[in-house]
Amino acid sequence: MKNELDSKFLLKVFDKIRQHGKKDGEKYQLNGITAFTDLEGYNVFVEDAKTKLQFGFHNQYHFDYPNQDAFDQFEKKLKQIDKEY
């Protein structure tokens, strides 16, 4: 399954999760979404219980999810965070 990613949208939502989310170690959690980076900060990870997104250097990204419904729910959560915060 191929999905297009708007990198500006993702980074904006990632920043909102870091600003408004609850910090747990090096991870931030907001509205069922967890966001964190690797040690160097080059890779961004955004995930929920079923869907994982790795976004890295040169706008390369990889989604991992079991089915389209899981992806759709993940995308809905990201859009809701963007809208609410």
Rank of each mutant, 00 (worst) to 15 (best):
N3S: 04
L5T: 00
L5N: 00
D6V: 05
D6N: 14
D6C: 03
S7K: 10
S7N: 06
K8A: 11
F9E: 00
F9A: 00
F9D: 00
F9V: 00
L10I: 15
L11M: 13
L11V: 04
K12P: 01
V13A: 02
V13Q: 03
V13G: 03
F14I: 07
F14A: 15
F14P: 13
K16S: 09
I17S: 09
I17Q: 08
Q19N: 13
Q19D: 11
Q19K: 15
Q19M: 13
H20K: 11
G21H: 04
G21Y: 01
K23T: 06
K23E: 12
K23I: 11
K23F: 04
D24T: 13
D24C: 06
G25E: 12
E26M: 10
E26G: 08
E26W: 06
K27L: 07
K27D: 11
Y28R: 11
Q29W: 01
Q29H: 14
L30E: 01
L30S: 01
N31S: 12
N31R: 15
G32K: 11
I33K: 07
I33N: 06
I33A: 05
T34R: 15
T34Q: 14
F36V: 06
F36T: 10
T37P: 03
D38L: 08
L39C: 08
L39D: 15
E40G: 15
G41V: 13
Y42H: 10
Y42D: 10
N43E: 12
V44K: 15
F45Q: 06
V46D: 00
V46F: 00
E47W: 00
E47K: 14
D48K: 08
A49L: 11
A49I: 11
A49D: 14
K50Y: 10
K52M: 08
L53N: 00
Q54A: 10
Q54G: 06
Q54Y: 02
G56Y: 04
F57H: 05
F57Y: 04
F57N: 05
F57W: 03
H58S: 12
N59P: 00
N59C: 07
Q60D: 01
Q60V: 02
Y61N: 00
Y61M: 02
H62G: 02
H62F: 03
H62D: 04
D64N: 08
D64R: 11
Y65T: 14
Y65I: 14
Y65Q: 13
D69M: 10
D69W: 02
A70V: 08
A70I: 09
F71G: 08
F71N: 11
F71A: 09
D72A: 13
Q73L: 15
Q73C: 08
Q73H: 09
F74D: 05
F74L: 12
E75V: 03
K77A: 02
K77T: 01
K77R: 15
L78N: 04
L78K: 09
L78R: 08
K79Q: 10
Q80P: 00
Q80I: 02
K83R: 14
E84M: 05
Y85E: 06
